[in-house]
């Protein structure tokens, strides 16, 4: 009898152990990790006009920016407040009128936003009712590349509550805007980021791109193109043009992450290219501006 009870206890323990192990196995399924970018809504400002004045004097634009930010917040997207950043910029440096034009770049750079959305809003008055049109254009802050744009007009209502009309216009398209941005992200993950590579020669260089710099018999331009092809993500690149003093790759794809899962920056690609040039006995200076990489061979 005791033996039978012991057997039952043993079976029960084994079953519990098996269930526990199964549970652990299920728990082990890693959740997909997503890097959430930060977004900042900023006012669209025509060339030559002050961004600050445009923001402060245009009530419908301020409403639209607030509504766009709210809509992102509601969807759990990390946002940065434009007004706060503008204020911070004002506090950190005394801005003169001559500097106004560059405020947009400064705010974007200071904010640390990954994406900025330029917002434009317009009131429409008519005898059949009023409406608001909102234009939203999302840009990659790093490269300046356009990610998505949407135009949305609210339904017409016989009201002067433009805040509500703006909200309706924003709400109608904000999901589609986010979905389009997400599609672009998916494409970046799949096909890599785009950078531009400009290579030139310094004035005192005693060779050009038609020179042979090693024993292979290939021209320097051919060697560089072969290297770019090998180094670009999925060998995807486009050579816009080549002369004896200049080479412009207007599209070179680089991966988002390296083999060890770390961010692959433009500077890393630049460092690899510099090493390649060094292996050919060439010295070069390097300038990185956003997704633009400029090399000057000496």
């Amino acid at each position: 009898m005791i033996e039978m009870i012991n057997k039952k206890i043993l079976t029960l323990l084994l079953l519990l152990l098996a269930a526990g192990t199964a549970g652990l196995a299920q728990d082990e399924k890693p959740a997909p990790t997503t890097i959430q970018p930060t977004i900042m809504a900023i006012p669209f400002t025509p060339e030559g006009r002050s961004l600050r004045q445009n923001f402060e004097r245009n009530d419908i634009l301020r409403i639209a920016i607030t509504k766009v930010k709210e809509a992102f917040d509601d969807r759990g997207v990390n946002t940065i407040d434009f007004r706060a950043k503008l204020k911070q910029l004002n506090n950190t440096g005394a801005l003169t009128d001559e500097q106004q034009r560059s405020i947009k770049d400064d705010v974007v750079a200071l904010s640390g936003a990954d994406i900025y959305v330029e917002v434009e809003a317009k009131k429409n008055h008519s005898s059949t009712g009023n409406s608001v049109t909102v234009i939203m254009t999302a840009y990659d802050a790093f490269s300046g590349e356009s990610l998505a744009n949407k135009v949305s007009t609210s339904p017409k209502f016989k009201t002067t509550n433009f805040a509500k009309l703006t909200e309706k216009a924003v709400e109608a398209e904000i999901d589609n805007l986010l979905n389009t941005i997400q599609e672009k992200f998916n494409d970046i993950v799949e096909n890599g980021r785009t950078i531009v590579l400009n290579i030139g020669l310094s004035e005192d260089a005693d060779y050009d791109f038609d020179a042979e710099v090693d024993d292979s018999g290939d021209l320097l331009s051919d060697l560089i193109e072969d290297w770019v092809q090998d180094a670009s993500f999925k060998n995807y690149y486009h050579l816009q043009g080549v002369t004896d003093t200049k080479m412009i790759f207007d599209l070179v794809k680089i991966p988002l992450k390296d083999d060890r899962g770390r961010s692959y920056r433009v500077s890393k690609f630049g460092a690899r290219f510099k090493k390649f040039l060094k292996s050919k006995g060439l010295d070069a200076s390097r300038v990185i501006n956003g997704n633009n990489l400029v090399f000057t061979l000496k």
Binding site: K29, T34, I35, Q36, Q182, I188
Partner: peptide, 9 residues
Amino acid sequence: EGIVKKFGI
């Protein structure tokens, strides 16, 4: 459920 990703990369 891991069927769609959260917004982001």
